[in-house]
Structures are given as C-alpha cells and as structure tokens.
Design a protein around this nucleic acid. Sequence first.
DNA 1: AAATATACTTACTAATAAGTAAGCAAACAA
DNA 2: TTGTTTGCTTACTTATTAGTAAGTATATTT
Lengths: 174, 174
Amino acid sequence: MDLAEKLIRTKGYNAFSYKDISVPLQIKNAAVHYHFPKKSDLGEEIILKTRNAFKKKYIEWEQCLPKEKLKNFIALYEKNQSLNLVCLVGALGSSYESLPDNMQTSLTKMSEEIRGWMQDVLKEGLKKKEFNFTETADEKTDVVIAALLSSLILDKVIQKNILKSVKASILKSI
Amino acid sequence: MDLAEKLIRTKGYNAFSYKDISVPLQIKNAAVHYHFPKKSDLGEEIILKTRNAFKKKYIEWEQCLPKEKLKNFIALYEKNQSLNLVCLVGALGSSYESLPDNMQTSLTKMSEEIRGWMQDVLKEGLKKKEFNFTETADEKTDVVIAALLSSLILDKVIQKNILKSVKASILKSI
DNA sequence: AAATATACTTACTAATAAGTAAGCAAACAA
DNA sequence: TTGTTTGCTTACTTATTAGTAAGTATATTT
C-alpha cells in the first residue's frame, strides 16, 4: 500500500500498474490481486488510510490553539514536499472523471472532512481573536486548502518553493 | 486537438487513448497518428496551444489596470468552471513524473510564464496603490495562482463552488 | 498530363493492462 | 493428526494500448 500510494502521488492512479508493485516487492502480479482483487479496491483503501491518518492527527491536535492547528496542518504539506509527493486529493482529484465510483465517493468524503475541519479551525481562531482576516471563515478556508493543495503540484512543475511562499502568505494574511 | 484537450482536462493524460478521439470523429486510429505520430506530440501541441491562447489574452489586457487584469484572469477560471474542466497545469502537473520529457518541459515553461505575468500584475498594482496586501508580491502571486488552480479540482471533488470563495477571498485580501 | 503531396484506410504488431482459475506449501486450529 | 485457512505461484485470458507499414483516393503543383 505504501508503494502504491507513492506511485499514485507521483505518477497518478492511471499511470501505475500492479507490475510496478509486484516487481520491486519480488512477488507475482497475482499476489497483489489476492490482497486487492481490483485496482479500485487498492485505490479506495489508500484513500481510507489517508483519511484515518488525518483523523488521528487532528485528534492529536485537539488541545492546540487555532494558529497552532493551522501550522501543524501546513507542516503536513511540508512533509509531503520533502518526500516529493503531491497530496492525495490533488493526485486523484485532477482526473476525477476517470476514477472508479468507489474512489470518487471516498475521495469526496475525505475532502469534505478536511474542509470541514479547516472551517472549524478558522472560525475558532476568529472567535478567539487569534485571527483577523477580512473574509468569512468559509471563504478563507477554501483559499487555504486550495493554495496548499496546488503548491505541491506547482513545486514540481515550476521547480521553485511555492509552498514556502504560500505558507508565508497564509500566515501573514490570517 | 479540442477533443484531446477536453479529455486531458477531465480524465487526465494517461486515461485517454487515440480511440477516444478517433471514434467520435468517425475516423481511424491511424489518422490521428498521421497528424500526431506520438501521443506526446499531441500532448505538447495542446500545451503550446494553451500557452499561445494565454499570451493572446494578456496582450489584449495590456492597457487594463492591475485589478482589471486580475479579474480577467479569474474570469478565465470561471469559464473553465462553467465547462467543467480543470486547468491544464492542474490536469498535467499532478502526474508530472509520468509525463514524457517534451511535455514536462513545455508545461514548466508555460507555468513559469503565467507566474511571471501574475508577479508583474501584482507588483504593478502595489506600485499604483491599487493593491495593499501585506505579503510580498511574489508571495501573493503563489497563493493566487495556486488557489485558482486547485479551486477547479476541488469544485469537482467537493461539488461546491470553491472558485467562488477563492475569488471572493482574493479580491477582498488584495 | 504527369508527378507529388495530403489525408486518410486497411491491416497489422508488440507490449502491457487488469483480472482469473487452479494448484501448492506452510502455518494454524480443531 | 487431520482439516482448513493464508498467502502465495503458475499459467492463463481478454482487452486495450501506442505505434507502424503499405496501400489508396483526392487534391494540388509543375
């Protein structure tokens, strides 16, 4: 699953095959099919795994102040950047129409959960006067999650540290 | 080319084949190969076409004030949204590693051009006191282009009007 | 009028893809 | 100790993919 996830997040879901997993692991193609009968089963499991990992994180951060939560969230992207990986939503979402139904559904649910969490963080920060941006929390949420998502893509394409700028801009404007 | 572009921007480069072009056009597979011997030739041509279209646009906007230029740029994304298409950089960039060399190169060049243009617009707006954000123009550039890019992806995944929020947030914070 | 270029079609090839059915060895449970 | 489950392998099938070689009809140029 780790290998498959890395492949999805560098080459995309449609550009990797079970051979890309079986060869490095020195097993046969059919062994992969034993664990994940269909490629979409593997794809869905990876989404669920990522979603659970995020859930674990934000439970861990529950006692943090909003600004700290936001910084922790950005740190997740910095981790991805250091591993040269785009985020899963970006990797899969850009070819949403080509995804099997079960993957579309679980990707949508995960994305909604992340967005909902960020809305809560920004609202809490506004209430606690830790933040004082002029937009509504919902509007700000969408710029923040959108900008972070793309920054990992643009990092690769432009080969500049886009995430660094995005982080600076978010923290200054919040 | 229009058909191929649409396929790339809905399903991704690796999820479409020449059959997806030849069948609707009622021609044979080999006819497509006659015009674009390799799939990567077609891919590159689409990038160059998009780049030229953008160049034409920003030359058209040369006399506009910075804020107007920014609004025109956002309107490009609104157009894409209405057609249910993600932008080309998002569609291709998220699977950058899987792209043929010639496509990587031309995608990078186009993205740099867009980013450079936006940097100029924001610097000009700052100088003319039309904008007064606290970040540097270079930092703000990266949030703006990143947020717009993702908004079209997230629109599909979350099925909410993310671009609308992003637009509102950008215009309020600038 | 002859030569040539254009835009295909027909008919393939070689490679790779996802997926399956049947068999087998080792671990484990009754 | 016998039976069953687990985790594979072997050996396929079927479909699709990118790409090509050779031929053909229609224009266009010389």
